[in-house]
Each structure stands twice: as C-alpha cells, then as structure tokens.
Write a protein that binds this DNA or RNA. Structure first.
Lengths: 229, 229
DNA sequence: TAGTGGTCTAGACCACTAT
DNA sequence: TAGTGGTCTAGACCACTAG
C-alpha cells in the first residue's frame, strides 16, 4: 500500500486488463479510469503514457485508446538453436571439446577478466536436420557459469537465460574466408571452399557473457539480421 | 506561431541548449523553465519527458536534470560511406551503371510497388583508401527519389536523409560465396576467392527505401554489427 | 451532440541531495 | 535549509470522431 504509487497501480491494472486482447481492442478511456480510481486525469495519463511508450497501447485522438499491434520483430540476439527453430529446423550439436583453460590476454580483455582467469572452452559441430552447418568455438568465464562444463546444456542461450544471463546485445563481425583443412573436413566441404566466419561478443547488460567464433558453410547457410536504429 | 505548442517550444529550446554539451552537463531545472516560459510545471515536464525518452537528458532525483551519456552505439543502419568514415577511411565510388529499369516481380514485391514501376538501378564499385572493397548494386523506387539518377550523390544515405528517407531499420542477409568472373575482375581477386555477399532491404518507417546486394572481398573487409534486443 | 484524447493551469506535498 | 525531481489534484478549453 504505502509503496504502491497510484499511477503504477493504474498502469498495471490496465496492463492486466488488455493482456491477451487482440490488437485494436478498446482500452478503458481516461475518464473511465479517473472515475474508477478516483484520481486526477493527469495521473491516469501518466499511467497510460508508460504503456504507450512500451508499445502496449496506442492512442487515437478523438476515438480512444486501443491495444497496439504487436511490435515489429524483436530483432533479437539469437542463439543457434533458436535461429534454427525459427526456420523450422532441428538443431543438433556434437561436442568436440569442452575443457577449462586459463585465459590469454586477448580473451581476458574481451571477456573482462584478468589474464589467467579460468575459462570454459567449448567446441561444437552444429547440425541442422542432420547436416553439418557450422563449427562453433565458445569461450565463457567459468565463475559466471558455474557447473556448465560439467553438465553441458543442449542450448547455451537457454541455459544462460536460466542463469539470468540472457544476452541482451552483441557485437558481431562477419567475414568470408576459405575453409582450412580441419574446418573443411568437419563441415564436409572442399579445402578452400568459401565459409562465413562469425565472431560474436555477447553481453547481458554490462556483463560479457560469451565470446565465440563460428564458421559456417557458405553454401548452406546465411546469417539473417534485423537492424534497428 | 499558432501551430507551435508550448511543450514543443520548450522541448526544442532545451534540445538546442544542450546540443553539443558534454554528458553530465546540468540542464535547466524544471522550475527555471517554468519561470522562463511562464507555464505550468506539468508543461515543462511534458517537454523534458520527451527528451528523456529520446535519451537526450537524464533525471536524477534530488539533484537535477543532466545531459545523458551518449547512447550505447547507435547500432545503426549505416551506409558504406558512414561505415568507412567510422573506421577513418576515405570512401570512394566508381559508378559502373545508373539506369532506369522497370521492376520485375521479385523487386516489385521487395520494394512494395506494382510490377513494372520504374526503378533506379545503380551499380558501383566502392573503394576504401583507393583499394576496391565491394561491388554494390542498389535498386530504388524512382518516384521516391526523384532526380537522384540525374544527379548521383556521393553518399546515398546522406542523400536519403535530406529527403527524409533515412533508413531506420533494415533486413540483412549475409552469406559467403566464391567470386564469379566479373566480380573477381572488378574486385581484383582470383575467380573462386571467398567473397561476402550482403543483401539488404532498408526501410524508413513503413517505406521500403532501398534493396541492395553488395559483394565484399573476403580478405579485406568484415561487416561489423551491433545487435540489440 | 456526446465522448475522446491533447494541451495546459496553478497550485500542493513528498523524498532526496547538497551546502 | 534550499533546491531538485516525483507525484498528484481539480479543474479548463481545444480539435477531433462518431452516432
């Protein structure tokens, strides 16, 4: 009670009220809410302003307030498993290597730890619908993901989400190269065939969660992105 | 005059006032603005709310309002010229072709026009610091950029900005391929050398502005991205 | 004409920060 | 203690939409 501000009460009331409603559904009018909660109109507007800012509601002058159309695609920093699921494909992975290694200088800097700090190095061959798609080498800071190396998850990003470390943004660098011998063998392409190299540094807020390098077959995969801004 | 709302007047006054100020600089207090403009405090708050929402200002209860720290990298749908500038390189372009073509079905659908609508097809060899970097083929809807084909700009994205069509979001697909004969010749690499293909559909709000395919030399260029979400 | 959101007023009390 | 932003009141007039 003492802690609940009126505009927050109203905001959450309206949020619950319209949750699950189809876009275009009428929301309560400002004056309705004034009557219902016995507050000033500015207070109601403050509550609705927040929901409009979040994209939950839409105002139409002279007509009313309505449930907004769903946001345009959440861009999203997606993991491989999610990316494949979005395309209706089944992602699999064969772990080639999972070990603890002390971090060198470059990785320490990228992961924001002191050189020598224990890292988890995880190397996987990833497949979609049974065919090799990419080779992925991921480095994680061990103390940020305790126990991960002992019980490797099916989907790294799912596991990170459960730890409250879902990547919220990432820096990505993409480049085209020729497949090296080992890459070629594992990806089942000729040596020198074009491959797409994807380096990522994924962060959850201020915390660097993952540094990875993924090498995709050029002929069977494309990286799709939705940029904003 | 009759068209200028008070909160807009105040918002733009403050925006100009703090433009170029260092992050952390004190902005006028709400009561200062009340006095200066002779308005109610709610009106001032409405103006400042907008700037806070845009990330221009930051409020600190009990202390004041301040110029916000720069947004974490504007993610940015960047054009080639801007991308190069950010790396401290000089971008140049050699126009290989600029012509009007009727749109086929695929392009018409991507650009949201009726098949046959006149398009501008613009093909450029792009260079950074004098060396060929990529081959870029851009399609634009002629009636959305009248006069562009007659006076080709140095930077497409600059030109679009002046027309109020600065891309605000884009769909991008990246893949690795082997260079075809003509690509190889123009980019000065061997036939079959790995190249990075970047397909983009750039939009300004609801309007599709550009559809392009860019082929980068694999060895001299990487596409960098910052994803959010 | 009745209802809606958009704008605006002229105050008020609170918790917090800095001096 | 003085100043700041955060919250809130109880009204008002406007332009617009719909029946």
């Amino acid at each position: 009670m003492s802690r609940s501000l009126k505009h927050v009460t109203i905001r959450e009331y309206v949020r619950d009220l319209v949750a699950g409603s189809a876009p275009g559904t009428v929301a309560p009018s400002e004056r309705d809410l004034v009557d219902r909660f016995g507050v000033a109109r500015m207070t109601v507007r403050q509550a609705l302003d927040a929901l409009v800012g979040e994209g939950v509601l839409e105002r139409v002058p002279g007509r009313g307030t309505f449930v907004a159309a769903p946001q345009r695609t959440p861009t999203g920093v997606l993991g491989f498993t999610e990316e494949m699921a979005r395309r209706g494909m089944v992602a699999e992975a064969r772990t080639l290597l999972a070990e603890r290694v002390p971090s060198g200088e470059g990785l320490a800097s990228a992961l924001q730890v002191t050189p020598g700090a224990p890292l988890v190095r995880w190397r996987r061959l990833r497949m979609a619908d049974g065919r090799p798609v990419c080779l992925c080498e991921t480095y994680l800071v061990e103390r940020r993901v305790p126990g991960l190396a002992e019980a490797l998850p099916d989907s790294l990003y799912d596991d990170l989400a459960r730890r409250g470390l879902r990547p919220t943004w990432s820096e990505d660098v993409l480049t085209a190269c020729a497949a090296a011998a080992e890459e070629a063998r594992l990806l089942e392409v000729a040596v020198g065939a074009p491959v797409l190299r994807h380096d990522r540094r994924a962060c959850s807020g201020e915390i660097v969660v993952e540094v990875s390098r993924t090498v995709y077959r050029g002929d069977h995969h494309a990286v799709s992105l939705l940029l904003r801004g």
